[in-house]
C-alpha cells in the first residue's frame, strides 16, 4: 500500500500573535507542524509498521520546510516532497487540493491521509476538495484506521451522536482528528538518519502542471485582514465574610452591570 500524507507548517499556537495593519507580526513567531497533520503522519507510520506500507509526505508552500520534513522522517516517513512556488503565495484550500491532485497522480497512491484541519486557518477543506477532484471516497474526522485487505480499509469517525464505522474501497482520502493517536517524539537515531535523507523539492513546473490547472486558477477565497481575538477581562475576586461579599456583589450587579 502506498500512503500519501499531507503536512502543513503553521504558527505555534502556544505563542501569542500580534497583528499590525491587518498583517501578522512575524517577529518572535515560530512555526511547527500542524497538530492534525502530525497525527496523520503518526497514523501513516503506524500503518507502515503494522501492515507494511510505503509512506510519502507532501508539504506545500511556506518556504523552507526542511526541519519539519526531517522531523517527519525521524518519525518514520520514508519519502518527502516539498512543492514551493511563488505562484502559491495566495493559494487557498482549492488550489492546495489541485496541487495535491497532481502529486497524487504522479505517485499512484492508495490512500491519502490528511489532518482534518490546520491549526492556523481551521478551514478543514483541503482533504475533502482533493477527494472531490480525485473522484474517490472521503471520510473526515477519523479516529481509527484499520486495514481490511489490499483494497479496503475500515475507519471510525466521530459524528454528532456517536462513532460511525465506515468501510471504504481504496483509493480513498481520510482526514484525521488529533484524537486518533499520540504522535511519537522523534528520537536521536531517527533524527540522525533523517539528516541523510533527501527531500524532493520542486516548483509547479517540475510537478508538471500547466498554467490553467494551478497557476492560472484563481483562488476561490482570499484573506483580506487578520485580527486578534479579544481576550476576556479577568474576573473579580471577592474576599471577606459571606454577608459582606453578598452586599458587594448585589451592589455591583445593580449599579455597574445594571442587570438587577
Amino acid at each position: 500500500m502506498k500512503i500519501l500524507t499531507t503536512v502543513k507548517k503553521v504558527v505555534d499556537v502556544e505563542l501569542t500573535m500580534h497583528v499590525e495593519d491587518g498583517a501578522i507580526v512575524e517577529d518572535g513567531l515560530q512555526y511547527v507542524i500542524n497538530a492534525w497533520d502530525e497525527s496523520a503522519v503518526e497514523a501513516s507510520v503506524q500503518l507502515k509498521e503494522n501492515n507494511g506500507a510505503e509512506t510519502t509526505l507532501v508539504s506545500i508552500g511556506g518556504g523552507d520546510n526542511t526541519d519539519m520534513i526531517r522531523r517527519c522522517y525521524a518519525m518514520g516517513i520514508e519519502n518527502g516532497i516539498h512543492i514551493d512556488d511563488p505562484a502559491l503565495a495566495k493559494a487557498d484550500a482549492s488550489i492546495f487540493a489541485k496541487v495535491l491532485q497532481k502529486v497524487y497522480e504522479k505517485g499512484d497512491y492508495d490512500l491519502v491521509i490528511t489532518g482534518k484541519q490546520a491549526q492556523d486557518t481551521d478551514s478543514g477543506q483541503t482533504g475533502i476538495i482533493l477527494a472531490e477532484y480525485l473522484g474517490v471516497p472521503c471520510v473526515s474526522n477519523v479516529i481509527a484506521i484499520e486495514v481490511m485487505d489490499d483494497q479496503h480499509i475500515k475507519v471510525s469517525r466521530v459524528g454528532d451522536a456517536g462513532t460511525e464505522i465506515v468501510e471504504l474501497e481504496l483509493p480513498a482520502v481520510v482526514t484525521v482528528d488529533v484524537s486518533i493517536n499520540e504522535p511519537r517524539l522523534p528520537q536521536m537515531r531517527g533524527i540522525m538518519m533523517a539528516k541523510k535523507k533527501a527531500i524532493d523539492v520542486m516548483d509547479l513546473a517540475a510537478l508538471g502542471t500547466s498554467d490553467d490547472e494551478v497557476e492560472g486558477a484563481t483562488p476561490k477565497s482570499e484573506i483580506v485582514e487578520f485580527m486578534v481575538s479579544k481576550t476576556r477581562k479577568a474576573g473579580q475576586k471577592f474576599e471577606g465574610d459571606a454577608a459582606e461579599i453578598t452586599a458587594k456583589v448585589v451592589d455591583l450587579l445593580a449599579n455597574e452591570a445594571k442587570v438587577l
Binding site: E14, L15, T16, Q30, E182
Partner: peptide, 22 residues
C-alpha cells in the same frame, strides 16, 4: 511515553508545560 508532552514542550517552547516561550 507519558513523558512525551513534557519533552515536546521542551523541544518547542523550552519548558515542560509546553506553554509559548513568549
Amino acid at each position: 511515553k507519558e513523558l512525551n508532552p513534557a519533552l515536546k514542550g521542551l523541544e518547542r517552547n523550552g519548558n515542560p508545560w509546553g506553554i509559548g516561550y513568549d
